[in-house]
Design a protein around this nucleic acid. Sequence first.
RNA 1: GAGGGCGUAGCUCAGCAGGCAGAGCAACGGACUUUUAAUCCGUAGGUCGCGGGUUCGAAUCCCGCCGCCCUCACCA
Length: 492
Amino acid sequence: MTSPLEKFEADRLAKLRKIEALGLDPWGGRFENHQPISKVRALPLAEGDPFAVGPRVRIAGRIHTIRRMGRIIFLDLVDATGKIQVLIGQKQVPEKDWSLCDCLDLGDWLGVDGHFGKTKTGELTIFATQLHFLTKSLLPHPDKWAGIADTEFALRHRYLDLLYNADVRERALWRIRFLAHIRDYLNRLGYLEVETPVLQVIAGGAAARPFVTHHNALGIDLYLRIALELHLKRLLVAGFEKIYEIGRVFRNEGISPRHNPEFTMLELYEAYGDYHTMMELTEKLILSCVDLLGKGRQLKLGNTVLDFSPPWKRASYADLFREYIGVDWQDTEGVFRAAQRYGIDATNMERDVVVHYLFEKIIGDQLQGPIFVYDYPASLCPLTKRKRDNPELAERFELYIQGMELANAYTELNDPITQEAAFRRQLAGLPEEESMARMDEDFLQALKYGMPPAGGLGIGIDRLVMVLTGSRTIRDVILFPLLRPEKRSGIS
RNA sequence: GAGGGCGUAGCUCAGCAGGCAGAGCAACGGACUUUUAAUCCGUAGGUCGCGGGUUCGAAUCCCGCCGCCCUCACCA
């Protein structure tokens, strides 16, 4: 027995063969000199019979609706810029084109030559004089009015989601605009965009479990990068002064509304700068994105309104810790008491690991922001330079918005001796794969050749786009988020 | 990884005090030369996520599995 879907496809294939029988290619080909639909819609209208006075136009797009009225057919044709109605009259097109109309379906791609004008009812319309079949669609498209409601269906058919849900398409376009804008902004300031390896022998520069893969010819396991940091710093050693990379990093961890296994990071390094340099840049860069959005500097996100008017709030890690937890983070006894109070099992944990967990669990989520949190416990920051007047503190800040860590920046540690010690110091209570302290001899060697003092910055692009587009989940800003493959039931 | 919710036609959804599987759109056939979610006449379309159980009888109740969503946990 054939399923309804197979029958549908068989009907489509029959039409496809009929198109071939007309001597046309059902998969089309090069089609030149067509105008964007939005441009056509803006053309001046002339009085009189459109077939006589309407300007000649050529468009291409996808059939969105069909209304057959006997010897006249109305189509709505959609391209990347908009939608317009096409009128096809039996008397106004070649006989072959009229035969072709029997084979037109929703979802097909079609080119149209015609005159631009208005129908009696005032609808902007292209009065067709010739059709150019471009591509057949073999499967039924979603209901054009209800769109796609099932999230799973939408995620597994993102191309249809983008096609039929305007908000999804709009968000995707905003992501593209923001990325172009960020590159443009940084390029203008003289930062050079570079590319560094995705496949690495040691996955360092962040605290995360890496994906493992294998290189057959070399016979070695390799890791997918979890950060861009260590190679970009090698480029500082190489004499590049202002560099950035926007690239995909991979972390072998859980999936959640705020986490996708692969995501896009911006990392930027500037010789002779420090974390203050990076804080100023972060604020200006993100503010310029907010301004690009053109909705003012108060952005609505869920039920809250975030105010991006500069300067953004700044608070030291120590002050926030005292404010929220009620003890000094260096008060060992107090920290362990607090852990108990918040139900954190701190047995065999070093104090600073407990401090870290307390901050992440209790404070981070509550920071609506935008707020810069600065001066972190040094032991938690093995890649960061210590404060000259207080070696317990590292010159690091994180930017929090809506309880999310959006940016992370340091005054980069460029002293290879301190760096080696930091790599060797594993904090008790922190699993090794979650530690940033991962020995990388090659990187240490690079530092020994001399890395200039520098500021470094990382921004989670997906999360930034979430904030800017008011998206509730990271899936809304990633075109193809990872999904578990669907097991086909029955035979397979 | 833990808890909760959901899964019915291509899409959007009803049906779930157990009793013949439903609607709108889409599809197929027909009428119509100015429609606007065109209209009208007619037709067809189902592994009710998968597997098991209870029952005379299961889309509906129970158990297991798969997938997605939400909350939490880990992380940016």
